[in-house]
Structure formats: structure tokens, C-alpha cells
Design a protein around this nucleic acid. Structure first.
Lengths: 140, 140
DNA sequence: CTTGACCTTCGAGTAACTCGAAGGTTTACA
DNA sequence: TGTAAACCTTCGAGTTACTCGAAGGTCAAG
């Protein structure tokens, strides 16, 4: 299987596959006589694991650890479970932050609409509000 | 005002201030005889605008545009309003994505807990689930 | 025989900083 | 007077996870 076919079955760009190989996540594959990479069916699983973990937001570093465990014939399940939990918590924190930010943006936008749109220097302008954000946070 | 004091009043690390100067967001300040940067009170506003806009998630590119308009004595308010609206929409999309991801992570974690944690090769393991994520999405 | 689709490597670019090295300056203190 | 601590300077490289471009080799079809 050449790289493009491999890319297709795992749904990962070929350039990304070469990148994963370069950083050591994927082993160097056999080569055809012409030097083209030649993947075996067994390779798909590893790449799918990487892609799956990435789509859940795990870092390539985390994934590297998981694969290293597996390569040493140790089951990485416990590590994976921990990482999934951590990630879920991180994301729930991130969601809270973004909600906050979303509210702030909407408020600022609404407030900005009530101001003139041609005030370069004065204080009656969204742009001026931008300079006040930190100060306002401190007062709260 | 030397850079550390300037950093303090605007609540931005000194290294970041140098960085903003290097990429042209902040003008080169006067220098003291010993070569140290010397900021004026008027400079604070510009840095606060940058910091405020950054904290709302605007990119340095966006901020560069805003500042360029201001430097040309054109009011950037309309642009700012547009950017705030765009950002709010982007963030609301991002929140939806993260919610989805959070649910997936929790589901996977819960499911993983019901599996043995010492299965290297077999299919009864969270790690195996990771390789199935894309396929499952396709079925849905 | 050439066109197009594939494959190769290498180096650089992205965003927004952050860090480290290697050095100069100023102030405080023994 | 010496020196240590706390400033300041520049420059280059590191971070994350790719992505792109250049320059070139290979292969099948028409």
C-alpha cells in the first residue's frame, strides 16, 4: 500500500503521515524498489490510534507515551483512561472560559453598537472600551 | 518609565512588550543614556488596547489592522465591532465543538472503566476504542 | 514523447510567545 | 573597594502540529 492509499484508509493526510514518521510516532515503513513507502495492513491500526487520540485532543506527546507502552508490550489502558479524564476536565474548564469570553464579547458588541463609529481619540468608542478590559476585571 | 514598570501598569510581561515592538505593534520607544527603553504615559493606552483585544481572542494580525487604522487617524470602531461579532460567533461554534468532545471523552472514559486494564493486543480495552473513533463517526 | 499523477527529501513558515545565553548597568551593602 | 542582586540589552532557538514550496525522480496512459 503506497502512502496515498494508506492516507485514505486512515483518513490522515499523507504529509502528516510523513511527519509522524519523522517525529518517531510511526516506524519507517518498508520501501518499494523505487523508494516509495510501502505500508502493510497491520500499520493501519497504529495510525488509527494516533488519529483517534488526536481527534480527542490528546497531544502527540501523550500519544507517544501510549505507543511507547504498547511497544514495550505493557497495556497503556490505565494511562489512556487517566489522560481521557484529564482531557475531559481540561475541556470543561476551557468551555467555562469560552462561555465567559462569549458573554463578554456579546456585551461589548452590543454596547459598541450604541456608540458613534467615527471617534478616533475620544472615549465614546468600542476601541476605547478595549483599553479598559483589564481595569474593569479588577473592579469586579 | 522603564520596561518593567511599563509591563506592570499594563499587566503584560516585559518580554512580550519587546516582542510586540519587534513585530511592529508597538513603536520603538525613546532610550535612556544607558540604552534602556523609556516609555511615556501615553504609550500605556496602546499597550492596553493590544492586551484588551488579545484577552478577547483577537489575533495580533487583527490588532495590527486596528492600530494601523488608528495611526492613520481613521476610527477603527466599525472594524472592531465586526471583529467582535466574528469572534463571538467563532467562539460559540468552538464551544459547541468542545461540548461534543467533552461528551465523547466522558463516554469513552466511562466505557473504558468497564474494561480490563491489562489488554495489550486484544479488543477489550480503551486503547482499542481509540482506533475505532473515525469508523464509528462514519456509521452515525 | 509528453502529460499528469504519484512519489521523494529538505527547509522554511505558521501563532504568539517563551527561554536561554552572554553581556552591560545600577544600587545596596559589608 | 568588591560583589551580589536586580535591572536592562540583543540574538537565536524552542514550542505545537502541522503545512507548503521547491526541486526532482517514477510510472501509466495516450
Amino acid at each position: 500500500m503506497q502512502i496515498n492509499r494508506f492516507a485514505e484508509v486512515a483518513n490522515v493526510p499523507a504529509t502528516t503521515i510523513r511527519y509522524y514518521e519523522a517525529i518517531g510516532l510511526l516506524p519507517e515503513p518498508r520501501r518499494l524498489d523505487n523508494g516509495y513507502r510501502d505500508y502493510a495492513a497491520e500499520d493501519i491500526d497504529r495510525l488509527r490510534l494516533i488519529a483517534g487520540a488526536r481527534s480527542l485532543g490528546l497531544s502527540l506527546d501523550d500519544i507517544g507515551e501510549i505507543l511507547a507502552l504498547r511497544d514495550r508490550r505493557e497495556a497503556p489502558c490505565r494511562v489512556v483512561l487517566g489522560l481521557l479524564k484529564e482531557k475531559a476536565e481540561e475541556i470543561s474548564r476551557r468551555i467555562a472560559e469560552l462561555r465567559q469570553l462569549e458573554a463578554e464579547l456579546q456585551e461589548l458588541h452590543a454596547l459598541g453598537l450604541t456608540f458613534p463609529t467615527d471617534d478616533v481619540e475620544g472615549k465614546a468608542c468600542v476601541c476605547h472600551l478595549l483599553t479598559q478590559i483589564d481595569k474593569r476585571d479588577e473592579k469586579e
